[in-house]
Design a protein around this nucleic acid. Structure first.
Lengths: 351, 351
DNA sequence: GGTCAACATGTCATCGATGACATGTGGCAG
DNA sequence: CTGCCACATGTCATCGATGACATGTTGACC
């Protein structure tokens, strides 16, 4: 049952293993005649190089680790992971995924597994604890953070949340909305530690305020609802967005538009609005974030798309550069952008 | 940069590598004194065993491959893969994913990569070509098919689609529905090859007809819409379900309930119904399948849940049994079951 | 006091690929 | 005719863990 080895191919072709290696790598001198014989032997035996042995010898596993959260809940992570994997494949690499579900302890165990398997680098889409990442640095394994802002002392590839969020705000304002609510992640709730850089949550909230200010609209604290995006323990539905929206709809002066900074939150918002017998976008406009669930919701969601493919691809490419070059090159933030669909319309009514 | 080796730990503790190995495996005789010394050395160096070297030596990589499709489109696959991975972790294994996107050529390349990396087994959630899978058999790597019915000569863990689908039909009938439409996958379109076993599509369609018959309802061919679940090329939205539903709503005698055999199709159905100004479940009831998007749709979808966690877990366990035992044990089909939410109601109107 | 078993630890070949190095040929320039 | 280089192929240590096997030390029992 054991698969063919280089040695067996060599014996069958009547040459040494070195010669077979030369043929496989097509470097060094090999006569056409032996080359043909070796290739015939390879074909006949169905030989496939053993990546495990190669990894041991070359001290390089051609494998990277990818840490993420909530893979069963938030398609954002699946997409980023998928595109990083695609890029990895094109470079002869494979990816190991690890889902830490937001638990620091699981993250540590995942990193330990990565180290044991001698991954050449680790991508983090949503890193938790700096001390966990230190394990990697000690082992000399480059780490890279995606999407999230440099929060735990690791180089990162950021997404520019501001551009897209500002486009969304401008879009709503142009449609005549002035009572615009914000439903998003709570910086304090989501990040314990301090960081010199603004979090994704702060960036999105900041753009909301910037958008209001640019339109000369005073911010109403009642319209600003912060919390979790979703609770993995609760199955990860948009229940948070549902609750926030219910509260917003109960306001004496309810908003005419809701900017939810996650499609999952927006999904909950749509459910609340539907239950109240209101229609989107006729009665109330909704904008989401991420462009994950958007096309499958009713109505299809106008949302700020994150560059998931580019994030994943650039993530792997940068990790590879770190593996080969020793240092992690800087990458400019990738822009987010508004995608128009069917959940926004002109603000016609007053209440 | 290089991480600590067994040898280094041994030198630091002043013992041989064999002794360190004994301490790590806690088998064989080791005096308490040396054991303490070795453990101290392990701690001091932060030693972590090299799984690549172990894999080479033991002729076992403690890695399995998981082939699937449409990972960015259909959360079903993500869930199955996630739970298989969870189970794998608990047994010291890691999973490599490969997304073949429905292309036989990609599937072959993926399998080649798996073989090169010497995975100990391969799980298929949606296998395509038998000749690809033969590559594994030749290499002596056990293969196992999940969800799909034994279609390509590999042992499989099936889902009993019939139970859940019958529950759904009974549920609709009990609510007074008699004009029940079916929107689902087309067996002929999805499977080219022949198989002695009914496909998932045939099973679901069969249960639909069985449900109708049990209620004494004559099947109306206009109510039966078959096609693809989604097109990956088109971004994978529920557009197919949308189109089918539009056609159903255009019928002179439109159905009062729709049974869509995929939540993605159901999502498209909800969009179509909404656009026509009808309400779910008041005007028309919808039942989905899979329980993937269900909680995030508006209204939350009554759907036939697939046992994704159990499928993934049982999948890995069975693969492990095949790895260790040489043969793949039979596993009884896992039941699907109806989950009641908010998209079904009593059939009140006549048109 | 000799024998045997339990205890304690060390040596070394092995897994398969790789690449530095060694060896060996032929031809052409000087 | 010598020297050198392009060409062609082979040998072998190495990567790190593992486990079969060898060696060596007690202590207890007959």
């Amino acid at each position: 049952m054991k698969s063919t080895t280089l040695m067996e191919v060599a014996q069958r072709a009547g040459v040494s293993t070195a010669t077979v290696a030369r043929v496989l790598k097509s470097n060094g001198y090999v006569s056409n005649e032996t080359k043909d014989r070796v290739e015939a032997a390879i074909k006949a035996t169905g030989y496939r190089p053993n990546a495990v042995a190669r990894g041991l010898r070359q001290q390089r596993s051609f494998t990277i680790g990818h840490m993420l959260t909530a893979i069963t809940v938030n398609p954002f992570f699946v997409n980023v992971a998928h595109w990083a994997e695609e890029e990895a494949l094109e470079h002869g690499y494979k990816t190991f995924l690890f889902n830490h579900n937001g638990e620091a302890d699981r993250e540590r165990r995942g990193i330990e597994r990565f180290i044991e398997r001698r991954v050449d680098a680790v991508l983090f889409t949503n890193a938790i604890a700096g001390e966990n990442i230190a394990l990697l640095t000690e082992a000399g394994i480059p780490a890279l953070q995606l999407e999230r802002i440099r929060a735990v002392g690791v180089p990162s590839i950021r997404v520019d949340n501001r551009v897209g969020a500002l486009q969304a705000m401008r879009h709503l304002v142009e449609l005549g909305h002035r009572r615009i609510a914000f439903v998003g992640g709570d910086h304090k709730l989501i990040h314990r530690g301090e960081s010199p850089y603004p979090s994704v949550e702060q960036e999105r909230l900041g753009a909301y305020h910037e958008g209001l200010a640019a339109a000369g609209i005073a911010a109403d604290p009642d319209y600003q609802r912060l919390g979790l995006y979703y609770s993995i323990a609760e199955g990860g539905s948009g229940i948070e967005g549902y609750r926030h929206t219910m509260a917003l709809l109960d306001l004496p002066n309810r908003p005419t538009a809701i900017f939810a900074t996650c499609d999952i939150l927006a999904a909950g918002a749509l459910q609340a609005i539907y239950e109240r017998g209101l229609r989107v976008p006729n009665d109330i406009s909704v904008v989401g974030f991420d462009d994950t669930l958007a096309v499958n919701l009713t109505p299809q969601l106008t949302t700020v798309a994150q560059p998931m493919e580019e994030l994943g691809r650039a993530g792997f490419r940068t990790a590879l550069a770190a593996i080969e070059g020793g240092t992690c090159p800087e990458v400019a933030p990738l822009p987010s952008r508004l995608v128009l669909r069917r959940s926004t319309a002109i603000a016609t009514h007053t209440n």
